[in-house]
């Protein structure tokens, strides 16, 4: 049973994307990686559903074709 939301969750998806990229603009690779790690932890905890996390891990790790 798919629990991971697939359709857009944001009213303004472009604004979300811009914000994400903007947050990384002045960061070097290490700082950027740290920001992403913290973001993953904060958001995963907010979701708080291991099935959703499992599906997201599988989707994120799926090889590109």
């Amino acid at each position: 049973m798919a629990k991971l939301r697939d359709e857009s969750g944001f009213a303004d998806a472009d604004a979300f994307y811009a914000k994400l990229v903007e947050a990384h603009r002045d960061l070097d690779d290490a700082a950027s990686a740290k920001l992403n790690a913290k973001l993953v932890l904060l958001l995963a905890n907010h979701i708080g559903d291991i099935d959703v996390v499992d599906e997201a891990l599988a989707a994120a790790g799926r090889p590109v074709r």
Partner: peptide
């Protein structure tokens, strides 16, 4: 190590961490 350090940096401010 990246995730470990991220957890440690979040911990003072966030209960879940």
């Amino acid at each position: 190590r990246l995730f470990r350090d991220a957890v440690l940096e979040l911990a003072p401010h966030h209960a879940f961490a």
